[in-house]
Design a protein around this nucleic acid. Sequence first.
DNA 1: CTTGATAATCTCAACGTTGAGATAAAACAG
DNA 2: CTGTTTTATCTCAACGTTGAGATTATCAAG
Lengths: 170, 170
Amino acid sequence: MSDAVDAIIGQWVAERPDLEEDLWPVHVLGRLQRLGRVLDKEFRTFAAQRGLELGEVDVLTTLQRSGPPYALPAGALLKAAMVTSGAITNRIDRMEAKGLVERVREEGGGDRRTVRIRLTDHGHEVTREYMAAHLANEARMLRALGREESDRLGGSLRKLLESFGDTSIG
Amino acid sequence: MSDAVDAIIGQWVAERPDLEEDLWPVHVLGRLQRLGRVLDKEFRTFAAQRGLELGEVDVLTTLQRSGPPYALPAGALLKAAMVTSGAITNRIDRMEAKGLVERVREEGGGDRRTVRIRLTDHGHEVTREYMAAHLANEARMLRALGREESDRLGGSLRKLLESFGDTSIG
DNA sequence: CTTGATAATCTCAACGTTGAGATAAAACAG
DNA sequence: CTGTTTTATCTCAACGTTGAGATTATCAAG
């Protein structure tokens, strides 16, 4: 069997035979790049059908899995999401308007620069429903691979992420 | 060893123990999503250091590997790049201004709707230099994995891409 | 031919992100 | 204390993409 990346590599070998020995990384990184695009599209559509932006899902799930009191500083969210400060401000503005989160400033002697983003009751409910549907969808997407090969694949991907220094959430 | 995704899954298990059995797909898809972001950033920086946008590299390499006459209709480019028509028009506008490609309309009895995008001599040279540096960079990125595990990993990723129906370039 | 449907590209406003800079608070040094 | 540096967030213009619609050309029927 062959996929789109095999076709691309085939074209390269035909056009630039001198590169053939150097094309092996494309089997991994070309596919990762392509899978990134495909998954991004898939997840974006999935979120849109439920009235959410992918970046908003990111914030919702980060807050939910952080546990009580389901509130994090904006800085923690932008590191977890790997985006810039402008993007987080934007997302929170939108989500606050939707009633999914609320900005909470420290009351007592806390740091008055930080703004904690807190999941509202509505945000909690939306996130719970979303996660259930999302996990079912992910399981479906991996049907072709099976549990055993998925585990092996996950192991190699972990190794790769570690080698890139991606060892903590934020 | 553990990576950022292990940390994320650990948080979920602590907060929602009832989901534990359903979290296994995250080991694969969560890492793919995260790798997508990391690689995107890496490749984007790499391209920017050479004065190119990632989307422009996409067009350049697609044209180069397509072989003589190094010209494709705009429609072929947008399918290969998995973007919409507006994005391709934009990219070609920019790249034409940079002298990397040129729009060529069919002369004789050809289809006068189609616009062929042709790599200029300058575009050829830029692409050749870029590919050499890019492949060296990719080999470096996979050092931690080694050739053998890279091949196994590539095989599983191919299977996944095939199951998503990603089996041809256009 | 003529009509209608399909196809290829371009146009343009809306959208989310980036990245530099502004603002304000806290931490540190003298 | 006072002045400097660092930290946390917000502001805003520029950028690339999306997605719907416009334009122009081809194809299929009658």
